[in-house]
Simulated scan of single mutants.
Amino acid sequence: MKILVTGTAGFVGFYTAVKLLEMGHEVVGLDSINDYYDVNLKFGRLAESGIARADVAYGALLQSSKYASYRFVQMKLEDTEQVQALFAAEKFDAVCNLAAQAGVRYSLENPRAYVDANVVGFLNILEACRHNGVTNLSYASSSSVYGLNETMPFSAEHSVNHPVSLYAATKKSNELMAHTYAHLYGIQCTGLRFFTVYGPWGRPDMAPFIFTKAAFNGDTIKVFNHGKMKRDFTYIDDIVEGVVRVILQPCSANADWSGLEPDPSSSSAPYKIYNIGNSDTVALMDFIQAVEAAAGREINKEFMPIQPGDVVATFADVSALERGMGYRPSTPVTEGMRRMVAWYRAFYGV
């Protein structure tokens, strides 16, 4: 297939594009390359996929030097005319939207960036699919949509009406918008709620990277809620396997769906929501110990109260993914962090 993958200078998008290319698909990658975190890491990912930093120019489609079937364009999703023109010219068979303004805490400081990229940008994707005959759309949601829900493990059939960050609210809005377009225009829309993704080339604003960096730099990490947090840490390879399966197996309408007892995870329209997590929640202090073991160093810690917008625990029920896609994430954090620390040492020369 010819597939548009947005966010390919980002963590999950980079890996997804490479996986699809290795499977023989044609990929067009798109990313705004914003400066939310270190752009050197983003350009490093692009270089790994054969896109030279010096060649990147806004709006210009670049040919990869590594993959004959990969091209990349720097573009903002909220740039309506450019997005429409790209769809009209390329005639995609499928779209996987992994681009977003990420981060819970940053949404407290810069809320408009989230509406621009995550709401306006996603609307442009939906409209471009609608007007260019693309009926296979998958997209990244987030475990953050569960908000104040305390029922564990989190199920895609649970209500997500109480988000506690604007980031989470924009991700829930993506799910609602996707359902509308599935219902009105028959676009097959599958959303994936990611649970704390980590691994080589990971995001430097997330705990696994911050902890790894602190181990080698001697920095002090802030341990929120005095360490009484749990996360469903999910290794990048497990995430990408799920993403690719969803792209290749687009959802269909649920024939048994009833408006009298509505299942939030499916619909009478071609719409589906999956959790994708390791389904093995890990105490924060145990995860820090896994980082220390992989790095062979102890990390300095400052214990802090919980941050606004944070949730105490995440834990994914992935049974729907297992039933629908025949797949269940499985990489343990000890092995995942061993691989991440090995990459960190090589990339940063420590």
Rank of each mutant, 00 (worst) to 15 (best):
S107Y: 06
F195L: 07
F11C: 06
S173D: 04
I3K: 09
T314R: 00
E298G: 12
A283H: 12
F224E: 13
K42G: 07
L176S: 11
H162W: 02
V282R: 12
P200F: 12
T314G: 06
A178F: 05
A57R: 15
V160P: 00
N174W: 00
G326F: 06
N34H: 12
D238Y: 08
N225Q: 05
S143K: 00
K230G: 13
K228M: 07
V160H: 07
L62Q: 08
V160E: 09
R203G: 02
F87C: 06
C129W: 10
Y181Q: 07
F347L: 11
L108M: 13
N34D: 15
E48V: 00
G7A: 09
E90P: 03
P332N: 07
H162Q: 15
A293E: 13
A99W: 08
P308D: 12
H162I: 02
G186D: 10
T151G: 00
F315L: 01
R105G: 10
A320E: 14
V27G: 01
V240P: 01
L176E: 15
R339K: 15
M229Q: 12
A294Q: 06
N161K: 05
L77D: 08
A85S: 14
R245V: 02
E22S: 10
N34T: 14
R45N: 10
A313V: 04
R328V: 05
P204S: 12
G218I: 11
I239M: 13
A255F: 01
V197C: 12
F211E: 04
Q74K: 14
K222G: 09
T314S: 15
I299T: 10
L4C: 07
H226V: 05
E322P: 00
T212K: 01
A294T: 13
Q84E: 12
T151V: 13
A178C: 11
K76A: 13
L192A: 08
F72Q: 01
S268T: 14
Y344S: 06
G199D: 09
G13K: 08
F87N: 04
F87G: 03
Y67I: 06
A156H: 00
K301Q: 14
A113D: 14
V145M: 03
A316N: 04
L184Y: 11
G227N: 05
Q82K: 14
T16S: 15
T170A: 07
R53G: 06
D232H: 10
E261H: 13
D79M: 04
D31Q: 08
S155F: 04
A316T: 02
G218D: 11
E241L: 03
L192S: 03
I306K: 04
F224K: 03
N149P: 03
A57F: 03
V341G: 02
Y181F: 15
L21G: 06
